[in-house]
Design a protein around this nucleic acid. Structure first.
Lengths: 199, 199
DNA sequence: GTCTATATTACGATAGAC
DNA sequence: GTCTATCGTAATATAGAC
């Protein structure tokens, strides 16, 4: 395949740089000047690769959404008891979030000012809705505490999962898959079993 | 005291309008033009009340931080077993977050591009650190599951709590105190006891 | 593919009249 | 306290040379 070293940009490699800057400064707080400095090429050179700032945003959130929706198609998400499927989806969502960290981070910070942003928000809602349906089925099976409001539980669960983007940073030179798996386990454990010793 | 109706702005009443727009469009995505439209006065009139955009941000995040830090001074946060103090602080943090919703929302979205933003981030970290210390003490007492990493648990707990700003909207004409209390109960219950039926 | 130069618009903030 | 008019700067994006 291609070697890692590249001395000319493609839309893909440029995206890597752009998403990092977007996440540091915020999308609206990032100018094409900021991007050009970070990429080490001039502003006009960026326009040679992409149509503009919003295309970079669209590519980034698309990648994040594709990763998340793919989880819902995996065998573990469509077979078995609902409660097991929910746990599977939660675990895999954490893993995708960590693997595609910069892209998901950007997705979760979108506000809705442009058409692209509103489209992203809509697809996010659709994902959340599908997981909420799974939780509902698990509750109907009696596998979740009866006093839990499902809509609320879904939101708190995602709140916990999504908050990972606020602090997680990959460990240099570590086994990322193992790292992500452990973190996913911790999230699932806390969400479903709680923090307390003796319930 | 003063009547609710005001036909001229004060820094306080202007802040109410500004924070709402900031939360809808993002701070960086909000121009003085946007603010002037929302407030129904001209841009230059805004400068009569406040020094500029950043002062509005500073006032807003200060209010949020003051509310949060005040929780740590309450009797329930400084007396009793650590595990009870953690639960108390969690519950009260939720309540303050809901009572001061627009201000805390803005605080939680600050990126660090200006001096004001970096100051806000620093104070937030300090608050988180103090709660982490409480959790640590609760774990030392054996009141939290032994396999839980405290640093991680703190982050997930705050992730869950802070995510409320992403979807909670006050119910018009409802008893807000009761509403907030119920939500706080649900959050504490999920965090400490989990979602599952039979652990 | 990358550059310099520039068009054009939007932004934060100020001046000064009323 | 609010306005219109405007300044200076920084933004997105394009033109055209190399």
């Amino acid at each position: 395949m291609t070697t890692a070293r590249r001395d000319t940009y493609t839309p893909e490699t440029l995206l890597t740089v752009a998403v990092q800057v977007f996440n540091e400064r915020g999308y609206d707080g990032t100018s094409m000047e900021h991007l050009s400095k970070a990429a080490g090429i001039s502003k006009s050179s960026i326009y040679h690769h992409v149509a503009g700032k919003e295309e970079l945003l669209r590519r980034a959130v698309s990648r994040a959404l594709d990763g998340l929706f793919a989880v819902l198609e995996e065998p573990g998400a469509i077979r078995g008891r609902p409660v097991e499927r929910v746990e599977y989806v939660t675990r895999r969502t954490v893993e995708v979030l960590l693997t595609e960290l910069p892209y998901v981070t950007l997705l979760l910070r979108v506000r809705g000012n442009t058409r692209t942003e509103r489209w992203a928000l809509e697809r996010r809602r659709e994902f959340d809705h599908q997981v909420a349906d799974l939780l509902k089925a698990a509750a109907a099976d009696g596998d979740l505490r009866a006093d839990v409001d499902i809509r609320l539980a879904t939101r708190l669960l995602f709140g916990m999962v999504n908050s990972l983007v606020e602090w997680y940073r990959p460990h240099p030179g570590a086994d990322h898959d193992a790292d992500h798996g452990q973190l996913a386990d911790a999230v699932v454990h806390m969400a479903f079993d709680g923090l307390r010793t003796a319930p």
